[in-house]
């Protein structure tokens, strides 16, 4: 319909009603007050009291007045995160260690599950039930590829073993 020459876009409900000729790129969309020049000297809310370890960007002088207190840093991933936060947000040494810490944290999560006697239900966690319901051909394809790759590895290992 929209591609048709007879399409009259002016009939779309609300067409053009929010057009603002003053909305030029040079006209910022913030309600400029000039308070930027006061920098961080503005009225603040009360400070939330930290009850867990909060890692803080070294690009600010203090904690923000509120913050999340979920999942404080712990274990090896926590040590990596503490290292990352010694570097600024401008630095690779901040972001790459954080990604590494996330992957380490994933392994720590599995170890934690097992140590509590809980075996993660990977199929449910990855939503394979939905994948099977809506995309059985795709699942079958993935299983076939995985099986073929497994057989290939097994076959090449056996061949190497029989040569030696």
């Amino acid at each position: 319909m929209a591609n048709s020459e007879n399409f009259d876009y002016r009939q779309i409900p609300g067409w053009g009603m929010d057009a603002d000729p003053e909305n030029e790129p040079t006209y910022p969309m913030k309600n400029y007050t000039g308070d930027d020049h006061k920098r961080i000297n503005y009225e603040r809310s009360q400070q939330q009291e930290p009850d867990v370890e909060i890692l803080m960007s070294n690009e600010r002088p203090a904690l923000s007045r509120v913050f999340g207190n979920t999942v404080p840093p712990s274990g090896l991933s926590g040590a990596i995160r503490r290292y990352a936060f010694r570097h600024s947000e401008d630095s690779y040494r901040h972001w790459l260690p954080l990604i590494l810490a996330d992957r380490v944290n994933m392994v720590e999560g599995v170890i934690d599950d097992l140590s509590r006697g809980y075996i993660p239900d990977i199929c449910t966690e990855r939503g394979w039930k939905a994948e099977w319901k809506y995309n059985p051909a795709g699942v079958a394809k993935k299983v076939a590829i995985a099986a073929a790759a497994g057989l290939l590895i097994y076959w090449s290992c056996r061949k190497k073993h029989s040569k030696s």
Binding site: T33, D36, F67, E89
Partner: peptide, 21 residues
């Protein structure tokens, strides 16, 4: 309350995230 919120930049609040600026 911060300068960013007061200027309508509510997505850029300076008092809600200590972990990144």
């Amino acid at each position: 309350k911060c300068n960013f919120c007061k200027q309508g930049l509510y997505g850029n609040c300076h008092e809600s995230n200590p972990m990144a600026t």
